[in-house]
Each structure stands twice: as C-alpha cells, then as structure tokens.
Simulated assay, not measured.
Amino acid sequence: MTIFTLSLFSNPLYSQVAVIVHATNQQALTESDIKNLFTGKLKSFPDGNPVIVLNLPEGDPNQSLFNQKVLGRSDAQVKAFWSKLMFTGKGTPPKEVTAEEMIKLVSENPSTIGIVDSAAVSDKVRVLIQH
C-alpha cells in the first residue's frame, strides 16, 4: 500500500457529519439557521415550534467536525462561548448525548435536532445538511 492509500483510511477529515431531525420534520433550515440553533440564538423552528438541540459529547470527533465546519469555531472556542453565556445567565449549552442515543432521541421527537456521523443516518431521521 502506498502512503497516500494509508492516509485515506487513517485521516478523520474524510468522515462527514450530518445534522438530523425527525423523519416527519419538514422544516427548511439554512446553514445560518442551524448555526443559530446550536449557539442558542434561535429557540424555535421557522414555524414557531420549540426546538430541542442535542450535541455529541465534548471530544467526540464528529462534534469537533461540526464545530469547525458549521459553527466556524474550535472546540475550545465553543466551550468558552457557552461558559460565558452560562456565567452571565444568558444561555445553557445543548444537552450532550452519545451517538447511539442521538438517532433514538431524534427519531422519537419531531422537536429535536442533532448531529451524527453521516454513516449512522437511518430512515428514522432526515438529514438537513452534511459536511
């Protein structure tokens, strides 16, 4: 095997992360809307229904990829952002759940939005964006 071939299998940059909602949730969200939901600037879907935002645990490679690609921030910057909001009483970070719990929770509740590895997507959820 060449070094290039080996790097394809060992480089986490080739994985993709998907932002998912319940399969029946037909909300049209822009990437900006998604960013605002995951930073607490929006608390509801465009139709006015409240949203429950779920994150993967801190340090999860898919959460890191989402932070970088969608939020445009490093893990440390996201942590500092939420620390400041919590300290000032202006917000609380999304609940953290495991990758296994993510699909289950999102597929059970149309008000939920979350993040998973694209390979974990099932027909029980709908993908809004993929990076």
Rank of each mutant, 00 (worst) to 15 (best):
K43D: 15
I129V: 05
M86C: 06
T88Q: 05
E96G: 05
S15D: 14
K35H: 15
L71C: 01
P93K: 05
R126E: 01
K35P: 07
T92G: 10
K79T: 02
V121P: 01
L128H: 04
T5C: 00
L37P: 05
G48I: 05
T112A: 12
N49W: 15
I115R: 04
S64E: 11
A18Y: 07
T5M: 03
T92M: 10
I103W: 05
L71G: 00
T88G: 05
L105F: 14
V51G: 00
F4W: 04
L42N: 08
N55Q: 10
S118P: 04
K41T: 08
S122A: 06
N67V: 00
D75G: 09
I34K: 11
P50T: 14
Q16S: 11
T88H: 10
L54T: 02
H22M: 14
V19T: 06
V97C: 10
K79F: 02
F4Q: 04
E108H: 11
F66S: 00
K90C: 08
A76E: 07
Q16F: 10
S10I: 14
L37T: 08
T112H: 02
L6K: 14
L8A: 10
V19K: 01
K41H: 12
I115Y: 01
N36P: 10
I113Q: 00
L105Y: 11
P50I: 12
V125A: 00
N49D: 15
V78Q: 03
M1C: 09
S7F: 02
Q27I: 15
V106R: 01
T112I: 05
V116A: 11
N62A: 08
T112Q: 07
V97G: 03
P46I: 07
H131W: 05
E96W: 03
L85S: 09
I129R: 00
G59Y: 14
G48P: 04
V78N: 01
P50K: 13
F87T: 09
A120V: 07
F66T: 02
F45G: 03
L8R: 10
F45Y: 13
K69M: 12
P110G: 02
E108D: 08
F66K: 00
S111D: 09
